[in-house]
Design a binder for these strands. Structure first.
Length: 261
DNA sequence: ATGCCAGGTAACACCTGA
């Protein structure tokens, strides 16, 4: 069994104790991290190595930052999303597992406010992501694309669609980009396992969103069809969100059966 | 309409997030 998880930690330095605790409890084979908020060379690799995880890192000062933790060696690490003219933002990281699976860890632009230049930049970034996914799928490569997509796929994936109707995360244009990824053949691991579930991966720090369960499902794991065939289970672990000094996001995970079937 | 909270940077306030 192989477990892959993704977690926007909102500062790896502040969240390190929670991440180490979760690694011990959940024991994922791969953990994608977003918003590490520290330069590549400042990533705290030692505590992960001591627990059997190596890290591939794409970081920058203060903002963004992504990483992949792995129990097994990673190869062919890339830190840019092709076609990205402005790759100054550390939002994307790819690596290949020993089993030949391409892993893509992403932190998509938020895109707010919608009236600003940030929204078209978000949409353009998603277009580049789709092009990258298509390239991998065209090569027949098994692909796990996981991270903070900053998109609410459907109305049921947010506590109140009306309350966030002006948000970039729920705009029809954003959802069209999400569906483009699905239309390529990628499978939403959580939704594939829980067709009718209402579950969130993010709750704002403000306004008592967590105790009121006013959340949204914006962190996702997309799978190429061959990997989706092997999908055994998926879930969202709410427990880290209730901890002291919690991130505003919580881990999303999925588990595979080994080998072909 | 605004701030509500949290983190980082820089500096005792401002930016970003979603």
């Amino acid at each position: 069994m192989t477990v892959v998880a993704t977690w926007n930690v909102n500062s790896i330095k502040v969240r390190l104790p929670l991440v180490l605790d979760w690694l011990e409890r959940a024991a994922p084979d791969f953990l994608f991290l977003q918003e590490t908020k520290c330069p590549t060379e400042a990533f705290p690799g030692d505590p992960f190595r001591e627990r059997g995880y190596q890290a591939a890192v794409a970081g920058q000062k203060a903002y963004n930052g992504v990483a992949i933790l792995s129990k097994t060696p990673l190869a062919d690490i890339r830190t840019d999303l092709p076609g990205d003219a402005d790759d100054a933002q550390a939002r994307y990281l790819e690596a290949t597992t020993e089993g030949g699976v391409r892993l893509a860890c992403l932190y998509a632009p938020n895109g707010n406010p919608v009236e600003s230049e940030k929204f078209p930049c978000k949409l353009a970034w998603m277009d580049r992501l789709a092009a990258r996914a298509r390239a991998h799928l065209d090569e027949g490569r098994p692909l796990v694309m996981g991270g903070d997509f900053n998109i609410i796929p459907e109305d049921r994936d947010v506590y109140d669609p009306q309350a966030v109707s002006a948000d970039a995360l729920i705009q029809p244009q954003s959802r069209a980009r999400w569906r483009t990824l699905l239309n390529l053949g990628l499978v939403d691991a959580f939704r594939a396992c829980h067709a009718d579930a209402i579950a969130y991966s993010f709750w704002d720090y403000q306004g008592g969103a967590w105790p009121r369960n006013q959340g949204m499902r914006i962190d996702h794991i997309l799978l190429s069809p061959d990997l989706a065939d092997r999908l055994a289970d998926a879930g969202i672990d709410r427990s880290p969100r209730g901890a002291d000094k919690a991130s505003d996001h919580t881990p999303v995970w999925c588990r595979f059966r080994d080998g072909a079937r």
